[in-house]
């Protein structure tokens, strides 16, 4: 524990220090620039665009993943045939590395890709277009891929959480005449509330850190249409070798993440 927290806090301290430097990460003589990296950040239009994408991304992916995760968990806890098969299909995306799947998704959403073929087969050919090349559709595709990738995780957590719900309580409710929807809203959802809040917190942090999918699928483009805080930190720290500015962005991320986690946490405590 001490090791874990200690290690990470050393890193945070170190990052905070680097954020005050104008440094490329390897030069022997970094120059101290005080808070200049932070003032630059607030005037940086790409930073604000990345923030807007991050917020939108968070709202959409969290909502969809949570709903899908709960529904899958409820259904697969019910009596259903071939349950294992469904579980595997939902689970597999979680284990596949985004680096491997990125070219596959670019192929699927390309101008002559399978997604457009599918649309044409369904008689919606007029909708077909190069999804990732268009600033307007690239972000939704990135969100879709993320949902595809991480719903398995919310599913697993809800599935585990639902095992805590006492079947007798549900049975009693049924005897009182409660239907499926009523059982879901009055017993199951309250029963997994803690998990929902935990997932909410993880989603906030996850959205702030979002990196893999946009970086690998679109590289943040076209024209920063899929730039996120996470990809922007990477762009500044590694290819542009502006480690100081990258660290300042990371500190910003840290502050935001802690702030939102505390917000969720205070709610959790109030309920408890």
């Amino acid at each position: 524990m001490i090791l874990s927290v200690g290690l990470v806090y050393i890193c945070i301290g170190y990052t905070g220090y680097i954020a005050t430097l104008d440094w490329d990460g390897s030069a022997p003589d970094p120059e101290s620039v005080g808070l200049a990296n932070f003032t630059r950040l607030f005037a940086d239009p790409i930073f604000w665009r990345a923030m807007a994408h991050t917020v939108l991304f968070f709202v959409v992916t969290f909502t969809v993943q949570t709903v899908l995760g709960i529904v899958f968990a409820v259904i697969l806890h019910s009596r259903i045939r071939l349950g294992v098969l469904y579980k595997i299909i939902i689970f597999v995306p979680v284990v596949l590395a985004p680096a491997v799947m990125a070219p596959v998704f670019r192929q699927i959403f390309a101008a002559d890709g399978q997604f457009n073929e599918l649309l044409r087969a369904l008689g919606m050919g007029s909708l077909a277009h190069p999804w990732l090349a268009d600033s307007a559709t690239a972000l939704p595709v990135i969100m879709g891929i993320t949902i595809w990738q991480w719903t398995g995780l919310t599913f697993i957590l809800y599935y585990a959480a639902m095992s805590q719900i006492d079947p007798e309580v549900i049975e009693a409710a049924r005897i009182d005449g409660a239907g499926n929807i009523r059982v879901l809203t009055s017993i199951i959802l309250p029963g997994v509330k803690g998990t929902t809040l935990a997932i909410l917190m993880l989603s906030v942090i996850g959205a702030l850190k979002t990196f893999d999918v946009p970086y690998l699928v679109t590289g943040g483009g076209p024209n920063y249409a899929t730039e996120f805080l996470g990809t922007y930190i990477y762009r500044q720290s590694i290819p542009l070798a502006d480690v100081g500015y990258g660290a300042a962005l990371s500190i910003m991320l840290l502050i935001l993440a802690v702030f939102f986690s505390l917000l969720v946490g205070s709610r959790q405590r109030k309920d408890a």
Binding site: R106, P130, A133, D134
Partner: peptide
């Protein structure tokens, strides 16, 4: 230019 070039990467696409 091929359609959708803005969403295509040089390698491997």
């Amino acid at each position: 230019m091929q359609p959708g070039a803005l969403g295509v990467q040089q390698y491997p696409d």
